[in-house]
Design a protein around this nucleic acid. Structure first.
Lengths: 169, 169
DNA sequence: GCTTGCGTTCGAGCGTGCTCGAAGTCATAG
DNA sequence: CTATGACTTCGAGCACGCTCGAACGCAAGC
């Protein structure tokens, strides 16, 4: 069996064949419809995280959020945009510690732009590495599924000697 | 700016353009050169994890490892192959709990093959989802890098109204 | 007036996955 | 004879990222 095919199929099964422009631009711009101000549950719903987590982020110093007359949080567009960024970064694996550093820089002013840019570049590399790792793991998993015999190792060599359990469907 | 280009560049920067057959087959078969038996540090070196972690996996019931006359662990080829599988799965995000379940099934015998296969299929889907997530995050990060202005949000709309910090290099 | 509901603060707790330290055993080197 | 060093077991500790519970506040509805 051609291993190129294997990898190709693995990549195809991701659904990355066609131009994903619609998805992509949505992922990038779904923050265009941010209202003037939102409650904590609204933001939680928007970002698909819990109010608990939002309060945690605030405690961690990642966002400042104003209060209304009742002491309830009022998220303005700025805060929501920041949170969109933060959750994106979290989702792609950036640690909270790193985000704290980033935010501290952002709040420190313009002159920290180069360092922030460096952080983003490094994070980009991290994501790339991770995707490569996952792609390889995916190929390995596909392979194991395809040749499944029940042994814990793929048993790459041993074309006719199924030692433990023989089944190749 | 064309968002297709953005995504395309993002994908290209992964280095997935050419056929990665060599890499792939290596990732799949580097367990072919497994010696008859290995010490804990050798296995740790092979898998790039710590001896501590190997003992932890054993305590967790993920592998059984024999001892020599000194009470030192002796990893046979079977154990090493299993550990290769386990670390691959861990690396791709499968929880230890799930692996415990999988291993329990594998040790339970042939009749658990369908369930094990199901687990692998599900894990494959999980990896695919994760890769898609990361790919999107990568595109977003690339975008933010490209349009970097220092604000926390990408500021997709607002071509001339830089509210916080105006800089678009 | 009282309940219901949605919010608040604070600190503690938890699940995951290691990671470490202490105390001991053995084998080889000097 | 005694280090030195690689290994053992056991239980505890830790970093991370939430997640939760308790006690409270306010505002609208019955």
């Amino acid at each position: 069996m051609a291993t190129d095919d294997l990898m190709t199929r693995a990549l195809e099964s991701l659904g990355l064949d066609g131009p994903p422009s619609v998805e992509a631009i949505h992922g990038l711009t779904d923050l265009a419809d941010v209202p003037e101000s939102m409650t904590i549950t609204e933001v939680a719903g928007l970002l698909d995280i819990s109010p608990h987590t939002l309060r945690y982020y605030e405690r961690a110093g990642l966002v400042e959020v104003a209060r209304d007359s009742n002491g309830h949080r009022v998220y303005d567009a700025e805060a929501v945009r920041r949170l969109v960024f933060l959750t994106r970064m979290r989702l792609s694996g950036m640690p909270v510690r790193t985000l704290q550093h980033y935010i501290a820089l952002a709040d420190a002013g313009e002159h920290t732009v180069p360092e922030r840019l460096d952080m983003l570049l490094e994070h980009r590399d991290t994501i790339c590495r991770r995707i490569r790792e996952l792609t390889l793991s995916l190929a390995a998993t596909e392979y194991k599924i395809a040749t499944y015999g029940g042994s814990t190792g793929p048993d790459v060599r041993a074309p006719a000697a199924a030692t433990e359990t023989g089944r190749t469907a």
